[in-house]
Design a protein around this nucleic acid. Sequence first.
DNA 1: CGTTCAGTTGACTAACGTCAAGGGTAGTGG
DNA 2: CCACTACCCTTGACGTTAGTCAACTGAACG
Lengths: 253, 253
Amino acid sequence: MAECRRANLGDKHPCRSCAVSARAVCNTLDVQALAELRNQGGEVRLSQGEALFHQGDRADCVFSLTSGIIQLYALLPDGRRQVIAFHFPGEFIGLCGWGDHHCTAEAVSRATLCRFDAARFEQFARRKAELAQSSQHRLTGDLIAAQNRTVLLGRATARERLACFLHDVHHRSQAGAGAGAPGNVIHLPMSRIDIADYLGLTKETVSREFTALRQARTIRSRPGRQLEILDMARICSLAFGTGTFSESALAAL
Amino acid sequence: MAECRRANLGDKHPCRSCAVSARAVCNTLDVQALAELRNQGGEVRLSQGEALFHQGDRADCVFSLTSGIIQLYALLPDGRRQVIAFHFPGEFIGLCGWGDHHCTAEAVSRATLCRFDAARFEQFARRKAELAQSSQHRLTGDLIAAQNRTVLLGRATARERLACFLHDVHHRSQAGAGAGAPGNVIHLPMSRIDIADYLGLTKETVSREFTALRQARTIRSRPGRQLEILDMARICSLAFGTGTFSESALAAL
DNA sequence: CGTTCAGTTGACTAACGTCAAGGGTAGTGG
DNA sequence: CCACTACCCTTGACGTTAGTCAACTGAACG
């Protein structure tokens, strides 16, 4: 269905080659509406570690992530950092701000995004009910993910947090990649510090827990920042089934 | 402005006496639309400890809290509990669920709510743009609150968590009560266990931190579950200004 | 071939949790 | 009106988990 719509695009249309068109917000739009939406924005390319926006910036744009991984994080005055979310291709970024951004968005790996003017996007959504509904569903999904993370950070042990993280990354990269990734191998471009700041731990604790899982033959490290999950049942039982990613949102669409 | 609309109501109209009409979702509606919305639902009264809905229940209703405090919490299979949010009068409950509720909603103190059928509310919102916008703002506010809580639970000490909690309750009850509450006295109907489960701590740790703040003359206990904040500056500096309640949403409306 | 930085590991520490006992208070029934 | 009870809160002693500090390893880069 989404494919049908895209088939009508001219060969030179940039959305033609978009890898996430079937999953992105814009997939609800017909060709003409898509063109109209595109006119409002442009493309953003980020290299690793580059920021999309900073905590305190005016939130005047929204973004659809087409490739790479983006992390949102907050910095406390004394330098403590908390990663609020990792965003994967096909997801929407910027819903959580009217006014000023309360967090920084930074590329974990090289990333590309479609940028839209926030006010015009909202105006556009008022006319296109499907778009409004789609972005509301994503917002709801983000809320549920954030609330689930609250449970994880408030009540789970270090082992459980890591298992939950691995479970979610696995789940989400399945959804994303379609084919390609064989079996239970996942790609983890984020550093131990990023993971630690996401899970409310230190890099040392994360490292120790990785070692423990490796020694229990639950996971195995692979070259190129890849990780194979050998005992998925074990991971699932440690993760007590709580998804902390907004992926749940996409599933329900 | 909200008052003007309500002045047109008949004397017997139940919304006439609503204490939160100026702050609730329905405040955006004119008299006729209000009547129409009311026809879809009814009133719910809960005694202390009674549940509004349970984790796993079908999420087919949304609610506007008119009095009392509601807590949302998740239970893990082994009994660990995490309170996800406290909701205060004027706030909207149930946005976070299509499908099944992922948490339980329970009255901390005696509470009353307006109930609306979720599907019909949504349908209604499609026709009334103000309502849709208002509920979207509330949803966004809840997301920001949940994300801020992520920072608190991931990176703050016990002392900071408690200070942040007190700061937020103070802030929110100011917004709610209007006049009435003198100076910096707040009402805390929730138990130490509720607070502990909200802050990702144990009741003993919460109790010890209360004692420490009391001994430092930062707070003072008052009869009737009331608490006076003596040194607000100290509370604010410990709370590093992070609001964890969805109240921020209301402020921006 | 050295430098740098991410990751790992070990020894020690601090913060919070656990377990257990005692005290205050409100509600209940004689 | 006063005991009785139950529950919540507080406090102390001790245990455990994860944090801190520091050294070492190995891969990436110039």
